[in-house]
Amino acid sequence: MRAMRKLMVMMLTITFGNVYAQSENLLNIPSKTTTRIPVEEGPNVWGVFHGRVPCQEMAKELKMPVESSCEKLKWAFTFYQDPATRQLTAYKWEGSLFRNKPAEGKCVLLKGMPDNPDAVLVQLNPDKPEHSVFLLKGDDNVLFMLDSNKNLIKGTDYLSYTFNRVVN
C-alpha cells in the first residue's frame, strides 16, 4: 500500500512537473527593451510599445518628407494614463523622423473600425482631427498602425505596421 502511494506521488510529480515546466518555457510575454535608456514605468504609464514600419509608405500616410533611401522607421510610443482612473491621457512618439524632438499630445481610446464597430482604437491628437493618427488595440500588448480611413495597413515580408509592448 505504501509502495503504491509512493508510486502515485512520483507519477503525479513527474506529470505536473512537466506540464508546469512546459508552460513556464512557453510564456508569451513582452520582451525587454533594447534601448540604453530604460523605458518609463509607474502608475502614470499605460504602456510602452516599440516597432519598425516601412518608411516610404508610412511617410506618405503621415505626409512627412523622407529621403528616397529611407527603408524603415524605428518608433517608440509611450502612453500615459491618469493613475486614478487609468484613462489614457497623453502620448510621446520617439524615434525616426522625431530624433530632435518627440511628438507629444493628447490621446484617447475609442471604438470602431469600418468593418468592426467593437474594435478598440487609440486616437492620437483627438483635439486636432487633421493630425489624428489611429492605432488598433489588438490586446494589451500589441497595437497596429491604421491608415487615415482607420483600416489596417498591409506590410511586407520583412516589416509590418505592428507595435509590441516592451518592458525593462
Binding site: 508569451n28 520582451s31 516599440h50 516597432g51 524605428k74 489588438g138 500588448n141 497596429f144 505592428t162
Partner: peptide, 21 residues
C-alpha cells in the same frame, strides 16, 4: 493581415524589431 496567436489564443507579442503579423 493575420496575426499569430499563442497556445491560449492571445496575440503573440513581438519585439522592437519583429512582429508576428
Amino acid at each position: 493581415v493575420l496575426h499569430l496567436l499563442d497556445l491560449k489564443g492571445n496575440f503573440m507579442i513581438g519585439n522592437a524589431g519583429f512582429s508576428y503579423t
